Amino acid sequence: MDSGTMRAAVLSGHGQPLRIMDVAIPAPGPGQLLIRLEASGVCHTDVHIWRGSVVPAAAPSPFVLGHEGVGVVAAVGPGVTDWSVGERAGAAWLHDTCGSCAECRDGEESFCQTHRAHGFNVPGTFAEYVVADARFAARLPEGDASMLAPLMCAGLTAYGALQRAELARGETCAIFGCGGLGLYAVELAVRAGARVIAVDSDEAKLAVAAARGAHKTVLATPGLAGGWDADDRAHVCVNFAPTTATWDVMLAAICPRGRIIAAAMVSQPVGLDQEWLTASGVRITGTSVGTRAQMAELMAIHAREPLAGEITRISLDDVTDALSALDRGTAKGRFCVMF
Score class of each variant (00 low, 15 high):
Pro269Arg: 05
Gly193Trp: 07
Val54Gly: 04
Arg257Gln: 14
Val236Asp: 00
Ala220Asn: 11
Met6Tyr: 00
Pro150Tyr: 03
Glu87His: 11
Pro78Ser: 15
Gly29Met: 10
Ile254Pro: 04
Phe339Cys: 06
His67Trp: 11
Pro222Ser: 10
Glu87Gln: 15
Ile261Tyr: 05
Asp82Gly: 12
His67Arg: 12
Cys173Gln: 04
Pro269Tyr: 07
Leu148Trp: 07
Asp200Tyr: 12
Cys336His: 02
Asp231Ser: 15
Ala117Val: 09
Ala225Ile: 11
Pro60Thr: 00
Leu298His: 01
Leu18Ser: 00
Gly179Met: 04
Cys101Trp: 02
Ala24Thr: 15
Val249Glu: 10
Leu94Gly: 07
Met338Thr: 13
Glu38Asn: 08
Trp228Tyr: 07
Ala207His: 07
Thr125Met: 00
Thr330Val: 14
Leu272Ile: 14
Glu297Gly: 00
Phe111Arg: 12
Leu140Phe: 08
Ser267His: 14
Gly31His: 00
Ala262Gly: 12
Ala234Glu: 08
Leu277Met: 12
Val218Trp: 03
Phe63Val: 09
Phe335Trp: 11
Ala262Gln: 11
Met21Ala: 15
Arg36Gly: 10
Gln163Leu: 12
Ala168Glu: 13
Ala149Arg: 01
Pro60Lys: 04
Ala161Glu: 03
Gly226Ser: 11
Ala214Gln: 03
Pro306Ala: 06
Gly13Gln: 15
Gly124Asn: 04
His118Lys: 00
Ala207Phe: 13
Gly90Glu: 04
Val85Trp: 06
Asp144Gln: 05
Ser40Trp: 01
Gln16Cys: 12
Leu94Asn: 11
Gly79Asn: 08
His95Leu: 14
Arg233Gln: 12
Thr157Trp: 08
Glu187Asp: 05
Met1Thr: 14
Val42Ala: 05
Phe339Ile: 11
Ile311Ala: 02
Ser40Ile: 02
Pro256Gln: 09
Phe120Cys: 08
Val130Met: 00
Asp106Gly: 11
Gly290Pro: 01
Gly29Pro: 08
Glu103Thr: 06
Ser324Arg: 14
Val130Asn: 06
Thr320Leu: 01
Val337Phe: 03
Gln113Lys: 12
Arg7Ala: 07
Ala185Tyr: 08
Leu162Gln: 13
Val42His: 06
Cys336Gly: 14
Val270Asp: 02
Asn239Lys: 02
Ala39Thr: 06
Ala58Thr: 13
Leu277Tyr: 04
Tyr129Ala: 03
Arg7Ile: 09
Asp144Met: 02
Met299Glu: 01
Pro17Tyr: 02
Cys173Leu: 14
Ala154Asp: 07
